[in-house]
Write a protein that binds this DNA or RNA. Structure first.
Lengths: 244, 244
DNA sequence: GAGTGGTCTAGACCACTGT
DNA sequence: CAGTGGTCTAGACCACTCT
């Protein structure tokens, strides 16, 4: 009957509603795992039809920000969820089974951002950062040497937190201890030669080809959270990429 | 008012309509680049509401089977489209520009399927296949050595076709000459050492780390069409993978 | 102006989960 | 049972394209 908010805006109503709800999720109004208000509640609150709210929330579900269950409700996704474990991990073994590696920490220390880190993490020149080195193992064999860098300002006590409760997966920890949810990532893949240190940790000859995965993980609004460089021995494994 | 087809089926109506329309596209009722009937025509034809057709066709658009333009209509996508060029090509240079390589054919010949080809291309043991070798060049430098295998039964005259009209991109050619549309692909990435032949073509030392991309390209219904192994010198380039 | 896809509404019915 | 999300319908209006 009436157009509702009747804004002369170019953006569709459902996209505006989506943005409003995403902002509230982002602000922590509902924590990971908690239910959002129902469609009808949102519709009443924003003065739009239920169909418009549905389209907004459906888009959030497609973006993996929320999960919907018929008869139960809509819930903020959490890296703590079983099904979210290893969401960004794409290594499979040669028989095409998805791998769940264990992690062993080599070091954790504070340092200063190098130029490449400044650019990829979008931090100030010479900013304080936390650097973690880890070795990841599948089926008893060390396969990945991993260097992880996060901003010290954002994760002030990460090394202490990790020594208190060693974590196999870091993203659930970022979420539970620092309230930061990784929602997307960009990975750049190259083939490189193992240097001496990597070769020793991975038990291969220096110069052995390794698959380098250079990842920037981002939270809402494409804000970088973590830079990670994984060097993988892909003798018995591969990185799976599905294109449509 | 009425439920329409009123099937007691578990699958939603829109999904059934989608399947019916996809089957017709697949059968070639509308060729790549041609317009589909309008939403209202489909709605009348199938005896469902326009909204249900909309949902079906929207899903096809999300799967990249069709493209929709307001005021114009819905069109079967074609690899001949400008914007579909290099749709499955994910190599960028280190300044993050997407690369459009040129291709130089090294060889094209008929051969017999090896066990790995049988499995990946899902052809009979010892089936006739066409094997193409190509060298791909960016900015004057050879960067990718590529081996391509397709079923001989499906592409009987491919070598002759290629010598007649050398093609930089093969998928538009599969589509225009054989009516086969590649709609999705699975890529497996590894780091490998260059063998002597690859090293010579790529101008590197044997043993140099190369990024291997092992791709199976598929048409409708996940039927394999082509197997391709690309070995890339990633000294100045990377493979981009976006995770959400 | 007629036809296209895109948005928005309002209401009905369904399947499912909780109590 | 009331409440949730999921499907389907019917109709209105809009922005855009072609003729």
């Amino acid at each position: 009957m009436t157009k509702g908010l009747a804004k002369p805006s170019a953006r569709p109503l459902f996209a505006q509603i989506e943005e409003l709800i995403v902002d509230r999720v982002r602000a922590g109004e509902w924590k990971p795992g908690e239910p959002l208000p129902s469609e009808s509640e949102f519709a009443q609150f924003y003065g739009v039809s239920q169909g418009t709210v549905r389209k907004a929330v459906a888009q959030m579900a497609a973006d993996n920000l929320v999960m919907r269950f018929r008869g139960k409700g809509t819930f903020v996704v959490s890296h703590t969820d079983e099904r979210e474990h290893s969401h960004f991990f794409h290594i499979h073994d040669d028989s095409c089974q998805k791998i769940l590696p264990s992690s062993q920490q080599i070091s954790c220390s504070k340092s200063r951002a190098t130029p490449v880190i400044e650019r990829r993490l979008q931090v100030q020149a010479n900013a304080e950062v936390v650097v973690i080195e880890r070795l990841r193992t599948f089926a008893g064999a060390a396969r990945i040497f991993e260097t992880i860098v996060v901003a010290g300002a954002t994760f002030p006590n990460l090394c202490a937190d990790l020594s208190e409760s060693p974590a196999n997966e870091l993203y659930p920890l970022y979420e539970s201890l620092y309230g930061i949810r990784v929602v997307r990532a960009e990975e750049r893949l190259k083939a490189v030669a193992a240097d001496d240190r990597e070769a020793e940790f991975l038990g291969v000859q220096p110069g052995t080809p390794l698959l380098e995965i250079d990842r920037v993980a981002m939270t809402y609004g494409d804000v970088p959270v973590e830079w990670r460089r994984s060097r993988c021995n892909t003798a018995d494994h591969f990185y799976l990429s599905l294109l449509r």
